[in-house]
Design a protein around this nucleic acid. Sequence first.
RNA 1: GUGGUUGUAGCUCAAUCGGUUAGAGCGCCGGACUGUGGCUCCGGAGGUUGCGGGUUCAAGUCCCGUCAGCCACCCCA
Length: 433
Amino acid sequence: MQAKALPGFRDFYPADLALRAHILHTWRAVASRYGFEEYDGPPLEPLELYTAKSGAEIVGQLYNFTDKGGREVALRPEMTPTLARMVAARANGLKKPIRWFALPQLFRYERQQRGRLREHFQLNCDLIGEPGPLADAELIALAVDVMRAFGLGPGDIKVRLSDRRVLRTLLLASGVTDQQLPAAFQAVDKIERAERRALAEPLAAAGMTAGTIDGVFAAAALRGLPAVEAALARAPGGEETGRPLRRVVEALGAMGLGEFVEVDLTIVRGLAYYTGTVFELFDAGRTLRAICGGGRYDGLLEALGGVDLPAIGFGMGDVVLAELLRERGLVPADVSSIDVFVAAISEQDVPEVLALAHELRDAGLRVEYALTTQAVGKQLRLADARNARAALVIGPDDRARGQVMLKDLRGQGQEPVDRTQVVERLARMAAVV
RNA sequence: GUGGUUGUAGCUCAAUCGGUUAGAGCGCCGGACUGUGGCUCCGGAGGUUGCGGGUUCAAGUCCCGUCAGCCACCCCA
């Protein structure tokens, strides 16, 4: 067998790359609409950038090695530490709120599965310096509008929205202690993937009573803002705690995006650093992994970069998104095509073919011609396979008359055109998309 | 990293109970067709049946190992 790409890494054939380019172009276009500016950092970083705050066990999922200078380095698994460093270095000079996005290729060493490789491209959007709920709504709206730009509507994808402060308040009201909160968060996070009995076991082991455990499951079962607010009304300080979540939902509703949003407290996100709003985007049938996930991380920039700024961000990978687009038939067709194919009748016509092809290319058209002398029919078959919209056929007779034959390959007709007018004629045709 | 499952041509698949030289469609190359594409017809190339070992007169088929894909767990920055 021939050498293949490493497990979890992809070869992009032209059709694959066309889809990837479509995704990256759309990401850039929508982020720009929101006034976000693109930045980037190195794909290779010091290992300690990722281990300093997360601990050594994370090394197991990093592509890390010692470079020739003896430095411990890692391929970037996420963008946030790089972002934190860059923002911290110029924090005083950057106008707030900072709206930045990046399209990094990220790497993680773990066993691959469908929708989950060892390498992927990710749209990373962060809004830094604004703690209020309107910033949260702005960022979620950006994620939703990316979906809409791909042609996906509220029947295709949903935003599952939660707020860790809300969940925390409800859990505390049920009798969960501060020490028990991490265990309770973890149980809520897994509630859809595990049996209730299996989840209750560690909670009991953490010292919770049966009644408190019931309270944990009750909070996780709440769906929709009214149900969550009703539960909050019975918790100390609940009304106050629920205000940001309500504002986020209302703002998204005002933007006309309310149909996409589902309040669901089981969205916890694994990361310990989220402090408030958290959300994930899923396909409506929930057959695929999350398309996008993010949340508010108000303490993280200080921990990573030493600058205390509130922030909210999300990451959206290309792998699950591409699967969804393929599934829904939203992949742009006809990705490769040329404008003009220039065919020679005889070998004596080749110099004229070369001259004309070059003039057309100078005019910005996409042009191909046969690289060996071959029958006209064969050249036109190649033109057809290339999705050319027109062919120019040049033979001795045409040259003698100072003309070329222009064939419309999307239709059937053909007509002689003066050699002096060909370039202008075709340039005009190509301009009409 | 753990457990399960699947590997046949570029792609999608076939091959009876273990039995002759592993086939088909699509795609690709060439021809019919030296002044005209799509269609059609004809021909061709392309396989260490993922890889290695074992059982057997005989292995794509059975057994073991390994690699890879998929599924679940772990994790999801």
